[in-house]
Amino acid sequence: MTIDTLETAETDRDVMTANRNETYLALVWRRLKRSWSGMLGLVLVIFLLVVAIFADFLSPADPRVTGESYQPPQVVTVFGEDGQFVFPPRVYPYGETGELDPVTFQPLVGIDYANPQIIGLFVKGAPHKLLGFIPMDRHFIGATDGSVIHFLGTDKLGRDVLSRILYGSRISLLIALTVVSVITVVGTSVGMTSGYLGGPIDAWVQRLVELVLAFPQLPFYLALASLIPVTAPTKVFLGFVIVVMSALGWAQMSREVRGKTMGLVRMDYVRAAIAVGATDRRIIFRHILPNVMSHVIVAVTLAIPTVVLLEAFLGFLGFAVKPPMISWGLMLRDTSNYSVIGAYPWLLSPVGFVLVTVFAFNAFGDGLRDAIDPY
């Protein structure tokens, strides 16, 4: 045997020893890092969560303050009126040029190069409470003179679109995470219990599951939403959205977990636990639950974008949260008119954040599924 063969054998033995010493989570993480789409999704998910938590600090303006309506997005540039390079970056606001439109006789609005807004970090602005209880007036980015910069323009009431999108991420992600959490707990518990016990209990539970799955979700939701008074508090609408989505969503998770459980019941380690007299509760939560968690985790990451899309769609129809709450779907109600979209296309900005959210969780869930699956 040559020296190269010996070195190769020792290297292979070291790799095998390292793999045996790795925990399950370490193996999953190592597989996940090989998927560029999964890692990109993970980074975007973390970014979205940070944006939702620190929306007050990241927002350049107070989303409730009104101003000039339908102001177009202001462009950040490092070049002056004469094309000369300037730093730090600055924004030139829009102002009246002093001329009138020859047809409508309305004042013409153009770029005001005489009054630039200099961009800065950690600038003073509208007072807010960081994390809901820390009073401060610093914002991550804005104008150094305290004026408001509309990076994505303003809506029909003159409110900053970017700030409303950042604040809206809280409601949209809160609804998605809460609904998916309820669906996961209820669906997993019902599915494991039904699949493990079998017999008449399983038969009756599956008839209930089939009844829930048979409901046409959208018409059923709209019918229930019409029963809530318009004057009801905004929290009532928020709670209603979460309850209805959870009540109609747990059945599919239950059916999937039941199928996994029925396969695990036939495994030798479960039969051995039954033979030694282990209780049903111990078998379900100590032997079956850890083995279905891989499927549940992947199902959760794939269910979150579905709920985000559903909330955006219902908010667009006006059956989700109500003002003064802010969500991406509620913001898209302003784009229900083709003329508005053609004249003020920046109002479609929330669509971009919805697409990023859906892609992030789908890509992360797809990469996590491949990392968890041992085959």
Rank of each mutant, 00 (worst) to 15 (best):
G98P: 09
I119Y: 00
V50R: 01
V86C: 06
P102E: 05
T104Y: 10
R90C: 10
S35M: 00
I46P: 06
T66M: 13
R90D: 12
E96W: 13
T104K: 05
F87E: 14
V76C: 01
A61P: 01
L40M: 12
Q84C: 05
L40T: 08
N115Y: 11
Y113L: 04
P63H: 13
G110Q: 02
Y94K: 02
W36Q: 11
V109E: 08
Q74F: 08
P107V: 09
P102M: 05
G95Y: 05
D56L: 04
V103N: 15
P89Y: 08
W36T: 11
S59G: 04
D82G: 14
V76E: 00
D82P: 00
V50D: 00
G67L: 02
I46C: 06
G120Y: 04
L40S: 09
V76W: 06
S69P: 15
V109C: 09
W36L: 14
P89Q: 09
Y94H: 09
P73W: 07
F54H: 01
V109F: 08
I119T: 03
D56K: 00
R90I: 05
G95P: 01
T104H: 06
D82C: 01
M39N: 03
T77L: 11
F54W: 03
E96R: 12
P107N: 13
I119E: 08
T97C: 12
P102G: 07
D112N: 15
E99N: 14
P89H: 13
G95D: 07
V50A: 09
L100S: 02
W36Y: 13
F79C: 08
G80V: 03
L44V: 02
I46T: 10
P89I: 07
I46A: 12
S59N: 00
I119N: 05
T97P: 03
G120K: 10
F85E: 14
T77H: 10
F87D: 12
L58I: 12
P88I: 12
P72K: 11
G41I: 00
E68W: 05
G110W: 09
Q71W: 11
P63K: 04
A61C: 07
T77S: 13
A52Q: 01
L100T: 04
Y113W: 14
F47Q: 02
Q74Y: 03
R64H: 13
T66P: 07
L42I: 10
F87H: 12
I119F: 11
W36S: 09
P73I: 06
F87L: 13
G67P: 02
A52Y: 00
P102W: 04
G120H: 02
V43Q: 03
Q74R: 08
V103H: 13
S35D: 15
G83S: 03
G67E: 01
P116M: 07
A55Q: 11
L100V: 09
Q106A: 15
T66L: 05
R64V: 10
Q84F: 10
L44D: 02
N115I: 06
S37P: 04
A55G: 06
L108A: 12
G98F: 10
Q74M: 11
D62I: 08
I53P: 03
P63Y: 04
I118R: 07
V78E: 15
T77Y: 07
E96V: 15
F47N: 00
D101Y: 08
V65G: 06
I53L: 15
I46F: 06
F105L: 15
P73C: 09
V76S: 10
L100M: 14
V78C: 14
